[in-house]
């Protein structure tokens, strides 16, 4: 029975409103399983972007099926698998996620294109595979030294 405590699973239709509710549900369940609050924000941001990509791109132009999310707590880490039966990622690999530049005139500021950048910034490891007609995106989050990781840019301050 211990496995139940370490796992959170949810599937929902790949449409915006269901995805929004699904993400809130997953976040609440992860918090209830003890995901530290400092890491909960990072996980939620990355998970939201991964789910949005499925909703907006994988099922674009076709009948949306389900997004399945499976989260597993391991020693000092959280592994999340997001799967769907939509189109494969172009090039069969997750984009590098170069961020759009904000050093532009106001009217040229980017209004999108940050999804993969955020995922790559926040997850420790990102892997993708296409298997049996499904997309499987694996995100790993490091839960060690949660305080230091959460503060990131303030590491020097923590050491002192």
């Amino acid at each position: 029975m211990w496995r139940d405590q370490d796992r959170v699973e949810l599937s929902f239709p790949a449409v915006e409103v269901a995805a929004s509710a699904g993400l809130a549900n997953l976040s609440a369940q992860l918090a209830a399983r003890g995901l530290p609050q400092e890491r909960a924000g990072d996980v939620k941001i990355a998970l939201a972007e991964a789910i949005n990509n499925v909703v907006e791109h994988a099922y674009a132009g076709m009948e949306p099926a389900l997004v399945q999310v499976e989260c597993r707590f391991g020693p000092n880490r959280l592994d999340i698998l997001i799967s769907d039966t939509g189109r494969p990622l172009p090039g069969a690999r997750p984009p590098d996620g170069e961020p759009a530049s904000v050093d532009t005139p106001l009217q040229d500021l980017p209004e999108g294109g940050f999804g993969w950048f955020l995922i790559r910034q926040l997850a420790k490891d990102v892997r993708y595979e296409r298997r049996d007609g499904s997309n499987r995106l694996h995100l790993r989050f490091d839960l060690r030294c949660a305080d230091a990781t959460a503060l990131g840019h303030n590491k020097a301050q923590i050491r002192s």
Binding site: K44, I45, N52, L109, E111
Partner: peptide
């Protein structure tokens, strides 16, 4: 309590539609 990149984009778009600089 939460925004994603679509929400961020909508805030950027809202600033642009204020007009001028």
């Amino acid at each position: 309590q939460f925004i994603d990149s679509s929400g961020l984009g909508a805030i950027v778009a809202s600033m642009k539609q204020l007009g001028g600089n």
